[in-house]
């Protein structure tokens, strides 16, 4: 059991999904993988397919159009999995709260483990959020 939790701590693969963000948070998420911040140091690789990912990095408020897709992508990910909500919109819907086409934050639709606040959050904050997610992910069965 010690070996498996060690391995999980060392290689959480991320999937980035835009649920209706303005692209600000997405640029910062991608920036966290660039040479300056280089998340591969911690073994985190950006994956293309939800079947290969362990951590879902979701940005933006859940709009009506992406709600079903978000749930589907979450269900396609293998267990154990965790979700990081990046940005103020992903936490609560922020300036769009109450709008006719918004469901609200990510946690209205799927369970969220870590919230990273900021509009947009700095790459350092996203890295910190992912490290917190790793700590939580390690304990999951």
């Amino acid at each position: 059991m010690g070996l498996i939790s060690w391995a999980r701590k060392k290689s959480p693969w991320a999937l980035h999904f835009n649920t209706g963000s303005c692209n600000g948070c997405d640029i910062e998420v991608v920036a966290a993988f660039t040479p300056r911040f280089d998340l591969e140091r911690f073994g985190i690789i950006l994956q293309g397919s939800p079947r290969h990912a362990d951590v879902l990095v979701a940005t933006g408020p859940v709009v009506r159009q992406t709600k079903d897709r978000l749930v589907r992508i979450y269900e396609q990910m293998p267990n154990p999995k965790c979700v990081v909500a990046v940005g103020t919109c992903a936490i609560s819907g922020a300036p769009f709260t109450g709008s006719y086409n918004i469901h609200g934050g990510i946690d209205k639709v799927i369970p969220v483990d870590i919230y990273v606040s900021g509009c947009p959050p700095k790459p350092e904050a996203i890295i910190n959020g992912l490290i917190q997610a790793i700590k939580k992910y390690e304990k999951k069965q």
Binding site: L3, I4, W6, A7, R8, K10, S11, P35, D38, E40, R41, F42, G43, D54
Partner: peptide, 21 residues
């Protein structure tokens, strides 16, 4: 970039950790 860094010395255990995970 730096590449895998924190899994074993200079990240040499990274592929092994990925495999086990």
């Amino acid at each position: 970039r730096v590449g895998p860094k924190h899994t074993g010395p200079e990240g040499i255990l990274q592929p092994f950790a990925d495999f086990i995970k």
